[in-house]
């Protein structure tokens, strides 16, 4: 079974078609990046897959569950780290994780176990009792991703996880994302070409709501006849 099977997914906003007949398969355990210029439809596609926006056409199956007819089942198996940092600013790091544990209905033992595991994975020990709103952007992003993992998702959506971070914070977050590979299927959107190339198993490029290219970073470079992935992206988007 594919982790995600998208068939003709479409979303319109008045006269604009934000996503236009998107069809795509993402394999289990894969880290799949969705690239595109602003307004390409990446975030809308993610919102539909996360059951936040109802499609106007098509459907998608996440681990076999339809986003149209089984949104509750889909929500139980996904995790989402939105584009902007989504943490409780007046709560400590520990309390933010406890909030998510409570939302997934964990008992005290499971809560302690899950918190410990995520604190270890994301190296949050030094900031555990600090309020999230007082942390740097890098720490907030780490917490944000850790919160998305509390529900032990089979599919994890990371919407521009390193946006606005400095080089060091971004590099550290890449290491963390690498450790998540194979634990869950990851769908990543980003504007950073080097990020997509460094992390992804496969990459899909969207333009004006349509998928215009799909493959590994190397395959896309070959397809565009470019030396660098950034040149390949530019060439493919201009052609498409």
């Amino acid at each position: 079974m594919e982790a995600i099977q998208i068939n003709g997914l479409t979303k319109r906003y008045k006269d604009t078609v934000a996503v236009n007949g998107l069809s795509l398969c993402v394999h289990q355990g894969e880290l799949f990046s969705l690239l595109g210029v602003n307004g390409a439809g990446k975030t809308t596609a993610i919102k539909m897959l996360a059951c936040l926006t109802r499609p106007d056409g098509g459907d998608a199956l996440l681990m076999g569950h339809s986003i149209i007819t089984q949104p509750a089942s889909v929500k139980a198996l996904i995790g989402l780290s939105p584009q902007n940092t989504a943490v409780g600013p007046n709560l400590t790091v520990q309390e933010n994780l406890a909030l998510m544990c409570g939302i997934y209905g964990y008992d005290a033992n499971k809560r302690a176990e899950k918190t410990e595991e995520l604190v270890r994975t994301f190296h949050l020990e030094s900031v555990l009792h600090k309020r999230a709103g007082k942390l740097s952007g890098g720490w907030q992003r780490r917490l944000s991703i850790a919160m998305a993992l509390v529900g032990e998702p089979q599919v994890l959506f990371l919407d521009e996880p390193t946006l606005g971070l400095d080089v060091i914070a971004r590099s550290e977050l890449w290491d963390t994302i690498r450790t998540l590979k194979n634990k869950a299927t990851i769908i990543l959107t980003t504007h950073y070409m080097e990020e997509a190339e460094a992390l992804s198993d496969r990459i899909g490029i969207m333009k004006a709501g349509r998928l215009i290219a799909l493959g590994t970073a190397q395959a896309l470079k070959e397809k565009a006849g470019a030396d660098t992935f950034e040149s390949a992206f530019i060439a493919l988007v201009k052609e498409g």
Partner: peptide, 17 residues
Amino acid sequence: AKDRESTLLLRLYATPM
């Protein structure tokens, strides 16, 4: 309003709540 602007609500809408 703060939760809406910070997208915390967006995150929580994607949970079983």
